[in-house]
Design a binder for these strands. Sequence first.
DNA 1: GCTTGACTTGAACCATGCTTTAAGTGCTAC
DNA 2: GTAGCACTTAAAGCATGGTTCAAGTCAAGC
Lengths: 129, 129
Amino acid sequence: MRIGDVANRLSMPASTIRYYEKVGLIERQRRVSGRREFDDQAVFALEFVRLSQAAGFTIAETRSLLQAYAENPTEKGAWIDPAQNKRTAIRAKIRELERMDDILSQILTCRCPSLTDCVKKGMANGMGG
Amino acid sequence: MRIGDVANRLSMPASTIRYYEKVGLIERQRRVSGRREFDDQAVFALEFVRLSQAAGFTIAETRSLLQAYAENPTEKGAWIDPAQNKRTAIRAKIRELERMDDILSQILTCRCPSLTDCVKKGMANGMGG
DNA sequence: GCTTGACTTGAACCATGCTTTAAGTGCTAC
DNA sequence: GTAGCACTTAAAGCATGGTTCAAGTCAAGC
């Protein structure tokens, strides 16, 4: 497959695929002409990259995970710590967003006519620096 | 107060305060010497900016909210729609993070020895493009 | 064999939210 | 009156994750 085929198949811009290659997420494989050649394994890697990015891993983290996978595709051990750490980070982020939601809820539902008091309540509730 | 005093009081870098002024979040008020002067109202505005940023509003959104506040400090009406929209966005983000957490949980707890199958399950569960 | 579209490259650009730097000025203590 | 720190400015830099551009190359149809 050529990059345009993969781009269509994954609904992913070709520029993004080139970028992923450039930052070391996927391998360089070329035809004699110099154009990129993609097999099903490469497509799988790209799908994994998308999943990993969607799961909140950075490019660097995704690269580490793919390297661990390349070294031993049948061993999940290398993934356990990063996945658990990421879960911890994701949950912290969820709690943070829930706190933001609480503050907004407070602003929307409290009885004071001015926002100033709501904001001060929000600040008092641990948003201060 | 001068910028250093405010920076200390809010535990916020002076460079950040200058940046907020530059992007129009706070007013320019100067002494004859050209240095910035901050009163309690300015400090309140900065505290609100911090709160707003922490609540996930962008700089542009925060600016809009502050303008609405400046036009009518005792009227919450102008804030209701932005706050509700932001709550909707925050909740969507929370659901997205929860889905990421589910995927990671699946990877950690499923019985297949290889990650490939877990990833494929994750893809099947709506992470595809 | 020529047009045309898909491809190639490296570099520059975009958006967000700051931080850092460089060069110069104000204020205060001594 | 001068040392020295806080302050001033505009501009550049950083981190992230790409997108866009310019200029040239490959390949398939006619």
